[in-house]
Simulated assay, not measured.
Amino acid sequence: MRKIIAGLLVSCIGVMTVTASELKLYQDPIPYGTYITDLDSMLTDAVKRNHWVFSKDESGIRYANLDYKTYKITTELMVKDNSVAVKFISAERPDCGKKSCKVDMGKVDGWLVKLRRSIAYDITLAVRDDALKRRFVE
């Protein structure tokens, strides 16, 4: 009996550490390889599909901002090793007129997942177009 309880405790502790280090759905980097030649242009088109606005500061850091339904969400688009990842920075509701102006993180996560999907979609189209070009050239 003691062995069973000890085994359950050890397995629960192992599960807890794995769960804490998992990425959110929107944080997984999207590789674009050599298929994207003008990354900023592609990101501008991809993020505006769902009301996001792309911006880039003087130091070269790329951002995607959403101002939608009383929510203001700021994310960083991290570019590293020919891949793009969405990094959540902040979410707030400054123009809320209701009693409860809590930020619904379920909605925020959903919008972040849609942002990632939109970027992945445009990268997929670029890969497909390159494959079609190569197919008809050969």
Score class of each variant (00 low, 15 high):
123 I>K: 03
114 K>C: 00
44 T>V: 01
103 V>H: 10
136 F>V: 15
91 A>H: 05
124 T>E: 13
20 A>K: 06
114 K>S: 10
121 Y>D: 10
130 D>T: 10
95 D>I: 01
26 Y>D: 03
76 E>N: 07
54 F>M: 08
104 D>L: 05
106 G>R: 11
132 L>H: 09
27 Q>C: 05
122 D>F: 00
16 M>L: 15
28 D>Y: 09
39 L>V: 07
98 K>N: 11
27 Q>M: 10
12 C>E: 04
97 G>N: 08
121 Y>K: 09
115 L>C: 04
57 D>Y: 09
21 S>A: 13
7 G>F: 08
47 V>P: 04
75 T>M: 03
83 S>W: 04
70 T>P: 02
74 T>G: 04
13 I>D: 00
71 Y>K: 06
39 L>W: 02
122 D>N: 07
65 N>P: 02
117 R>A: 03
60 G>E: 05
29 P>C: 07
131 A>Y: 12
39 L>G: 02
41 S>I: 00
15 V>K: 00
100 S>N: 15
116 R>T: 06
90 S>D: 14
10 V>M: 14
16 M>K: 03
57 D>I: 11
1 M>R: 13
91 A>F: 05
8 L>R: 11
132 L>Y: 15
30 I>E: 09
78 M>G: 00
91 A>C: 11
102 K>N: 12
23 L>G: 02
119 I>A: 02
91 A>S: 13
66 L>F: 06
93 R>Q: 14
17 T>W: 14
97 G>V: 04
127 V>D: 08
33 G>D: 13
40 D>M: 04
124 T>S: 15
97 G>R: 11
90 S>R: 11
129 D>Y: 09
64 A>Y: 02
5 I>M: 05
9 L>W: 02
61 I>S: 06
6 A>W: 10
86 V>K: 05
61 I>W: 01
55 S>C: 04
83 S>M: 07
6 A>T: 12
116 R>C: 06
127 V>F: 08
58 E>K: 13
127 V>R: 15
46 A>N: 03
51 H>F: 12
126 A>T: 03
45 D>Y: 01
